[in-house]
Design a protein around this nucleic acid. Structure first.
Lengths: 338, 338
DNA sequence: CTGAAAGCGCTTACAG
DNA sequence: CTGAAAGCGCTTACAG
């Protein structure tokens, strides 16, 4: 079932059919002819072959987004944002989940690339080495190696989170962070350290724990921190899932939040507000971020010179019920009264 | 940069290059020639054009999975399962999130289809009308209209959930369910009703609430149920997110789980075990489900006659801390707390 | 073990 | 307003 069959069926040429289906009929094909073509196509069950179109035009009208863990709602939001932007431009976005495997993500993205996607949005995945002359690659929240990029002001967020805790009187603050290789993890850590440094508090290595951005790792690392002889009075986390894991760790060892322990998350996924107590966290505009990255890739794919090829979005600290004064300090504040 | 350039560079024909890159060199191309081709390609930065290959071979080596809400961890698991199965066969799986818009999902899937994907996995999305002669469509957990399908034994799960509550002594049981159009929502409801019927308990329409499978709707519908003059002593939910929403509703009105109210979820997403108290829920094998659906699509795409084109996976009730005996006295609620 | 040639199904100047 | 023809970059019999 090809455009030739349709053309034959209603006695027109293949070009006419093509014009109708590529939306270029306006002013070139008579309304009657167009209607005839469409009804013949419908009758035959014809649909244009996208691979042929992509081969001929050099554009697949699709971009692919590669993320490490779609199970983390952060990336769901990112995808939504990217899809909204792409959709408006008539593009589809396909998602690849690498399950935290940087190598595979790169290989798979590569496979999808040449000819099948017009752009690539990479989150914490090693960019393929063949950047030159290929489809545009936009790097999200990680090392860009010369690729255009979109990131969040992670350092600003970490700094705000830490200052909030310092203002409340905390001095012994635990830090959970992500994989060493992740730029976003390093940036979060840098922000924490800078704020500590600024407040003249020496960095205590035993209070820094590293793991994946998951609930499970948050729980394990949290348990480790709570088992220290000199327990922290507050913990800042690499992301909200880790923070929720710390909630679980606290529950297990009978530590109350925020009375005995303050907890700060990162991202502000939906679950942060649902938690009991609601989680104080650094809000990242992830949908906005997805839209920005997709827009950048789209304009690059269209051959436009973007006005800007390096974006940074603001973050804000959202104070909820999981933070309060440290237990040893002045009288505790009842969080339900905030 | 095409295979012809590579061929020219190392003095072989285009066919030789093609054979090397399609993995058919074994026994046809000498090791020396293959090495020469590969190094020339690397030097030139050549990658085979996937659109051309797809056009020629009629296979894109990719399938697409369409889901209503990737933010729901259920679908993350489904994707993971599908990806694992597809990957083993050398296929990529791309995900489309419809954001609960059935129409758009169908349109988008359609766009990605012809020639760009070898199969389509649809979850609660209207299958495109042109089924005949196109790429295989596997329908997950919804009305199949003749398409091969994979589903979970939802009725069995609902039945088990309800029996569990009945065994504990509950008689006034609230039911949260999903959109009317969703077959999976209807199946869950049917299971609940059947169990109620079987126990000789008349169905009380005021105890049935309908909404999306989200935390927010769970909270709102839960609040409504808890505001009833004759409050239910237990609530079974359409999915875990709704159940977590009910937790929040209960917290708001000062109802304790499981002492004052038993709650049962559906799916067993990670968050169910993390909740406080851990959620009793119906475990669905969603990763398995994704793998099954992908495998079905793959074998269909390969032109094989599958041994079975209708799969149903078991569900099991996982009893955790959110269910217990109904409270002794008549339930009371303080309306001022709502 | 390697090469010449046809063709997958479109789009797009170009001619009329 | 419509048609004939070339060509996008591969793969695959077929011939040698």
């Amino acid at each position: 079932m090809t455009s030739i069959d349709v053309a034959r069926k209603c006695g027109v040429s293949q070009s006419t059919v093509s014009l109708v289906f590529s939306g270029k009929a306006k002013g070139r094909i008579s309304a009657r002819t167009e209607a005839a073509v469409r009804s013949a196509a419908e009758e035959l069950g014809y649909r244009p072959n996208a691979a042929a179109r992509a081969l001929k035009t050099g554009a697949a009208r699709a971009i692919v987004l590669v993320v490490p863990d779609i199970t983390n709602p952060f990336f769901g939001g990112l995808l939504r944002g990217a899809q909204t932007a792409a959709r408006a431009a008539g593009y589809a976005v396909a998602l690849i989940d690498t399950d935290n495997d940087r190598e595979w993500g790169s290989a798979s993205a590569e496979a999808l690339r040449a000819g099948l996607a017009d752009g690539l949005l990479l989150f914490e995945v090693d960019p393929p080495p063949f950047s030159e002359g290929g489809e545009p690659i936009v790097v999200i929240e990680s090392e860009s190696r010369g690729h255009p990029s979109a990131r969040l002001d992670v350092e600003g967020g970490s700094d705000a989170a830490l200052r909030h805790l310092l203002d409340l009187g905390h001095r012994r603050i635990g830090v959970l962070t992500g994989p060493v290789r992740d730029l976003s993890a390093r940036a979060r850590l840098d922000g924490f350290r800078a704020a500590l440094d600024h407040a003249g508090i020496p960095v205590d290595d035993s209070l820094e724990q590293r793991g994946l951005f998951t609930f499970e790792d948050g729980r394990e690392l949290g348990l480790r921190l709570l088992a220290l002889r000199q327990r922290p009075t507050a913990i800042v986390c690499g992301d909200d899932l880790q923070a929720l894991g710390v909630y679980e760790a606290a529950r297990r060892v009978g530590v109350r939040i925020p009375d005995d322990l303050s907890v700060v998350g990162f991202d502000d996924v939906d679950q942060a507000a649902w938690a009991a107590p609601p989680l104080t966290t650094v809000r990242q505009q992830f949908a906005q971020m997805g839209a920005t990255a997709a827009g950048l890739a789209l304009s690059l794919a269209a051959g436009q010179e973007p006005t800007q090829d390096r974006y940074e979005l603001d973050t804000t600290l959202v104070v909820r019920g999981s933070t309060g004064r440290p237990p040893a300090g002045p009288p505790a504040v009842d969080p339900t009264l905030i």
